Amino acid sequence: MTVPNSTAATARLIARLDAAENEPGAVRLRQRSYELLDLSPGTVVDVGCGAGRAVAELNERGVTAIGVDVDELMIATARDRWPGADFRIGTAQSLPIPDQAVTGYRADKVLHEVPDPASALEDAHRVLAPGGRIVLLGQDWDALMIDSSHPELTRTILRSTADSVPNPQAARAHRNLLLDAGFQDVTVEAHTGIFTEPKFLPIVEGFAATAVTAGSITPEQSAEWVRDQRFRARRERLFVAFPMFVASARRP
């Protein structure tokens, strides 16, 4: 799920999302999430839909998909890219969906952005019809890994990155959050996202920028670290990895 941004910040975020979403591993994980929804036909709400790729792919599968995001520019981009698809502005805690109106709920990299994930799952329970399926995907920000020639500096940068996220460990809590919200038949899969392509470099550089903004490292340290990552990218030696947890369940 995206959070409100300036126009320039949202544009940069869309570019980063486009790069990440086209990675083979990301494509496979999205397809897995659709399988776990087990819906055709049906109506699915994709919470934190961003620029709308998953909504379009679900529609292509014969599913009626509704995309919801809090960022107005993100929704405008989605509407421009996928004319005719249903995109709505709203939050995970208060979806613009009537009670028991959907048979599927999907949230990809959303709960770590929500101050109170439990409230989001309460609303998921509200909008899902009995027997409806829910699928949550998310990375564990405290387990992010980057190969670097500066391991201690990397630890500082990654810690600062995790600290910038409202709930960096939300993904490892998916199972218990679903159980607490009253869902049944909860299952969890662990996947590892591995990114080695140079096009992922802007995201890596963003981690260093976040650490500078937080005061965790100096601009000089950031420049040194980024130089190493750019050198690695030029030599096809970039390596970023993090665990992705995919939880699914059924509303009784």
Score class of each variant (00 low, 15 high):
C49I: 05
G182D: 08
S149M: 07
A173E: 09
E113T: 13
R53W: 13
R251T: 11
S33H: 01
A101Y: 02
G215Y: 05
D140E: 14
G90Q: 12
T77N: 14
L179S: 10
G50D: 09
A247H: 04
T213E: 14
R232N: 09
G50Q: 09
A11S: 12
R230L: 05
V246L: 15
G138L: 07
V246N: 05
E21M: 11
W225F: 06
D142H: 13
L39D: 00
T161S: 05
G48P: 08
A78W: 03
G215W: 06
T77S: 13
D80A: 15
D99R: 12
V44W: 01
R234V: 09
T154P: 03
G52E: 06
F245Q: 06
T161C: 06
C49E: 04
R12P: 03
L121N: 05
F183C: 06
I146T: 06
L177M: 08
D185S: 14
P168E: 01
A107M: 00
V63Y: 02
V70C: 10
A85H: 14
P198E: 08
G84C: 07
T196G: 04
D163F: 00
G206H: 12
S33K: 00
G67P: 02
L177V: 02
L128C: 06
P41G: 05
L128H: 03
V63T: 04
A8C: 02
A233W: 07
G90P: 11
A214F: 04
R81E: 09
G90M: 07
D38L: 08
S222R: 15
R61H: 10
E23H: 13
L17W: 07
A214C: 12
T2E: 10
R159A: 09
